[in-house]
Design a protein around this nucleic acid. Structure first.
Lengths: 240, 240
DNA sequence: TAATAAATATGTACTTACGACACATTAATT
DNA sequence: AATTAATGTGTCGTAAGTACATATTTATTA
């Protein structure tokens, strides 16, 4: 076989692909996995393995497989990295800039997830995987800082309307903990007394039953999210 | 060259692509182009040219080109189909189900756009392109009904917080027209008097200056959106 | 153990927003 | 000129948002 024949064949193959509008575009899913610990909102990052971004961290992502849809891919990533599969996950935005990725055109669909760091059921998959306080992040690999910020903005919207925030807390928590979490996410200080009232109004938020008073982190009653609002799984949000 | 050699070469070519995680996945952009006319919210649809969906309509979409980003692609579609390029356009959601498209895997990023049908600057590009009242749409090609509904839900959210709705109206309009538009989008009836107050509170909405009373469709003053809130172009939303 | 400090639980008053509804005014119709 | 239909404006009760005060409980410390 001559070089020319080889070239022709290659060209034909590529043309066939091009003709079908199948371009060489990679599709990835990036997950902004958020947790809450020590009064700080944190995001799970991995050391970038690309030379161009040595020293920088990046979000957890992967190319989607030909036989999995977007949700499946994002759940797979979450499962692979944290061991968790029963958590809140929501698509936020798709980033398709031309030069996002140094080795070629890659379009990424961004999801975010909220998990309780203290939950001992999950295990990080990788030594290079660490929690970073979102407020201290200045730069990330690729356009991941933009993706992170976009997801944080979406979270700030959601938090006012839906009980997604409880995914970040253990099952039982004090009002103080909840308020501090809101303050961390929204970046504002809230009045204790008014916060209590506002949260009470959103009756979907709290179960203010008396509970056994076992080992509270701080003085005060403990609370829990009402069962009917349990925000577990991907479909949780759609219900409200 | 034997068939076997040919097959090997093809396999090698495909493997090379696979190895780079460049799968045969098509990327499209679908635009939900909404207009408002005769007290109805309408969407621009085209007769599907696929046999599988003969008789059905579909949204306006196209494969993205290798050298254009997502926004560029959606603006190109809008420009090609309507002649307009100075309009509101927002990404809503990305649909990546496995069997959305009969001829292969296609992931689509959905955008929506709001345009004033009465604006005489735009021209439909195609005979098979028509406005359809959204309330009368029962079925569309592909998963386009789902995409349409998703965009409508997003619009209903946006409408309460941002002055995007004014893209659907001519520059001058009466309060009655505006109220009818809200009613059409939200699917509810509103009280005239309360609507006036609610709209007045959102001072970003209206310019309640006295204007020349030239040929109003109905009795009553005419209004316009304040200039600083003029929702022209893609970046309009981000400002608020 | 009792006093003190710190955090929590609850309450009051004022302002603003919302929803139901009444009445007056203007423009088109007859 | 009278009628009709639409618009412009106002009131009131209820609910929610905000600022701020006081009492109770828990933890600390003398």
């Amino acid at each position: 076989m001559t070089d020319k024949a080889l070239q022709q064949l290659k060209t034909a193959e590529i043309e066939k692909i091009s003709h079908l509008d199948y371009f060489n575009i990679g599709i990835t899913v990036d997950c902004v996995i958020l947790g809450y610990d020590e009064k700080e909102l944190k995001v799970l990052l991995i050391k970038s393995d690309m030379q161009e971004f040595s020293g920088l961290y990046s979000l957890l992502g992967d190319f989607i497989k030909p036989d999995e849809d977007l949700e499946t891919a994002s759940y797979r990533i979450l499962k692979e990295r944290t061991g968790l599969d029963d958590v809140y996950l929501e698509q936020v935005h798709t980033f398709g800039g031309l030069n996002r990725h140094p080795s070629g055109r890659v379009i990424t669909i961004a999801y975010y997830s909220l998990i309780d760091i203290k939950n001992h059921k999950f295990q990080l998959s990788h030594n290079e995987l660490h929690w970073h306080p979102v407020n201290e992040i200045r730069k990330l690999a690729f356009d991941h800082k933009l993706i992170l910020d976009t997801c944080l903005n979406r979270l700030r919207q959601q938090v006012m309307e839906h009980p997604v925030i409880f995914n970040l807390l253990p099952e039982k928590f004090s009002l103080r903990q909840l308020q501090e979490l809101y303050e961390a996410i929204l970046g504002v200080e809230l009045d204790r007394r008014n916060f209590r009232k506002k949260i009470a109004i959103k009756d979907w938020l709290l179960d203010i039953d008396e509970m056994e008073n076992d080992v509270p982190h701080r003085p005060g009653k403990l609370y829990a999210l009402k069962k009917q609002y349990k925000p577990k799984g991907a479909k949780a949000l759609a219900l409200y």
